[in-house]
């Protein structure tokens, strides 16, 4: 049985003070992952003494467009992403990904910061945010640091967050001219799915030529990472010379070289190739239509 003391933070400052002055603190926001882990007595949820409730911190609940980025408060819910005009305008793949998370009830409660900090290999927001080169801001009583999301992640269900830090926001740099995005997901049913596989693709196309490609599958590797070799294979290539099916195969090879052959590999090898192929085909089609 997991026992703990509960402390509700009335403000960010007090939350940081609490974190700074106590050992064994676990923060709870939407609770949609944590309370399940506690119920299941999952090892991930063991070994803490205090539950710090930050769900009431309104100051971390915002989505705003800034000069060069969109800032998403860590306590913004998935529903906020789905409904936000700013997100839908700049990062439709993020809204698409958020739509596939859990159910309406989960999206109303679960937060962007929670999804990132839980760091599940199948988290639906991680591939798009990594592909968008998002940064996260972490605050302590004494200061703030900002680091790229892919550096923040340290492994499956592991991050580089220090025990006295709270994630305050996620900054997603605006994409310049000529960028296209796509999100794909496979689940075992049509709603309330943990991703069997997901995929975010962000790339630029100028003069029919691909630049700055970012390909991030989820639930494919121990935790979501960019598939650099696959990206290289299309970077600088004319889209007419790219065979999306072949790039799909390449992504599958890259997955297997990272994970080795596992029980699910026979399935994921084919399915990931399909997703990559599909995402590229969709983007190339959009690019053509945009000409």
């Amino acid at each position: 049985m997991i026992d703990y003391e509960f402390f509700k933070a009335p403000s960010l400052k007090e939350a940081l003070e609490f974190l700074g002055s106590h050992e064994g603190v676990k923060a709870i926001a939407g609770g949609t992952d944590l309370l399940v882990d506690i119920r299941k007595e999952n090892a991930r949820a063991k070994g803490f003494k205090y539950l710090l409730d930050i769900s009431g911190l309104k100051e971390l609940k915002f989505i705003e467009e800034r000069n060069d980025c969109v800032a998403i408060g860590a306590l913004s819910t998935h529903t906020m992403l789905v409904e936000s005009p700013v997100i839908n305008k700049h990062f439709p793949l993020l809204a698409s990904a958020a739509k596939t998370i859990g159910s309406t009830q989960i999206r109303n409660r679960g937060t962007v910061g929670g999804n990132i900090n839980n760091a599940s290999p199948a988290a639906d927001l991680l591939p798009p945010l990594i592909a968008l080169k998002a940064h996260v801001k972490l605050r302590t009583l004494n200061g703030e640091r900002k680091l790229p999301l892919d550096e923040f992640l340290a492994g499956p269900y592991r991050t580089n967050r220090q025990s006295d830090e709270i994630m305050t926001e996620v900054c997603v740099p605006l994409l310049g001219e000529g960028y296209f995005t796509n999100f794909q997901k496979i689940g075992r049913r049509k709603a309330m799915n943990i991703a069997r596989l997901n995929l975010a693709v962000v790339l630029g196309i100028k003069d029919d030529t691909v630049f700055d490609p970012r390909i991030v599958p989820g639930a494919a590797t121990a935790y979501p990472i960019r598939f650099g070799k696959t990206e290289e294979a299309i970077s600088g290539k004319r889209i007419g010379d790219i065979d999306p099916a072949e790039i799909g195969e390449r992504a599958s090879e890259e997955m297997i070289s990272a994970t080795g052959v596992r029980w699910s590999t026979p399935y994921k090898r084919i399915a990931l190739a399909s997703l990559v192929k599909r995402a590229l085909e969709t983007i190339f089609r959009e690019a053509k239509a945009n000409e």
Partner: peptide
């Protein structure tokens, strides 16, 4: 008890949520 069946759905401050995944202490106010 894990937010999958929805039988415990209530409306909290205007939004449908799972009452099994919210601590009452969190719902103060």
């Amino acid at each position: 008890g894990v937010g999958e069946c929805g039988a415990c759905t209530v409306i909290l401050d205007g939004e449908a949520v799972h009452s099994c995944l919210i601590l009452t202490a969190q719902a103060d106010g």
